[in-house]
Design a protein around this nucleic acid. Sequence first.
RNA 1: GGGGAGAUAGCCAAGUGGCCAACGGCAACAGACUGUAAAUCUGUCCUCUUCGGAGUUCGAAGGUUCGAAUCCUUCUCUCCCCA
Length: 422
Amino acid sequence: MNFVEELRWRGLLHDMIPGTEELLSKEKVAAYIGFDPTAESLHIGSMVQIILLMHLQRHGHTPIALVGGATGMIGDPSFKSEERKMLSEESLQKNVAGIEGQLRKFIDFDKGAELVNNYDWFKDFSMLGFLREVGKHISVNYMMAKDSVKKRLETGISFTEFSYQLIQGYDFYWLWKNKNAKLQLGGSDQWGNIVTGTELIRRIAGGEAFALTVPLVTKADGSKFGKTEQGNVWLDAKLTIPYQFYQFWLNTSDEDAEKYIKIFTFLDQATIEALIEEHRVNPAARNLQKRLGQEITVLVHGEEEYQAAIAATAILFGSGTREQLEAMSENTLLQVFESVPRFSVDLNLLKAGVNILDLLAVNTQVFESKGDARKMIQQNALSINKEKYADAAGMLTESALIAQKYMLIQKGKKNYYLINFS
RNA sequence: GGGGAGAUAGCCAAGUGGCCAACGGCAACAGACUGUAAAUCUGUCCUCUUCGGAGUUCGAAGGUUCGAAUCCUUCUCUCCCCA
């Protein structure tokens, strides 16, 4: 099975320039994807792009990962309804460094693969030079006709953002010329920018280049993929702890799980089909979600963190009781809850007896305010140490402690917090 | 340049002097049911609260009034028609 066939059955193929498949089947190709340094870490939306490069490498082609140190200074207007805020150069540098570090975890840059930053070839490119060498080849009419900027032509777009596709187009030209990159990959929203690049390559050098895009990952219920109540799901363990990361995948709907297991894992077709079949017979077991969570958590955070995440899951969502919590050693307890958000509170506060509302809304931020806490408690949404707690006027003392120093707070069914008294 | 319509909470949207912290819908959060799912039902949903209330809202600033989302003045912005 070749690269394109692989993408096709996995549902990772959206569009290609004619000839792309032939090119990939007859030679080993260097192909690139750009990553925007909009944050210090990539999130699971970018995971699709990373996996694409990994597939590419597995099929013997050469991946080039580009971090947009230059393009990040401009801001991609594609399908955005508003002008973007410019990032400071300082945070941009931090973001570039963060993203480069993450990419190294997934792609083996020793085997001919490259990690580049377009700032390197733009930093000494003069404005006049750019206008004469690049701008002259592409007409404004051509640039305005793109779907990706159409909306913005009505509501307003700065010259800076409008020039974005030209900058990205030049990246492609530069990599084509200097790194022999004949193909650019990207999300379907990048089609317009990529094609500006192939056009530029043809007009400047009479060369031929290709494009391949992957579909946007969607959810069956129409809401945005990759978001939870807590916000984005990041690849950085400090921003989204592995337990929450695993939980995100475990919570995917049946319909989405069938789609995601093909996109986000490297399991072969027979294995995946068997898993889907099994899941359809017994959806309640959620083996599909569990396997999906396992594969991608191991890929992103490693086996150890995955084990910790399922251990925590088993305790938190299994038939855990206060007795079981009490029976755990402090070490086990800490390991299990390593990945649960935690707060530290002075033990003396508890010794003196503390009001439940104060503890959860003032001394810690489990709830936003005392009013919020009271309402939640009245709605029966609070558990302490796996036991429902319904008294909004209640006082807590040392008797509520586990292992003499911990208290496990549960807001609703899924939100856990550990308070550490010392 | 002339004429008209409009701006209400995260979004859509009702409200034209007191009964308005503002109908309804969506989204969100919680409860029940379940599989940590979907669908359904129930509750919450400006902020704080000792749950009695208190404070700040209806594009902005002034004004009228005992009382203004609602009336008047000026300003800002959006849309439509004509030129």
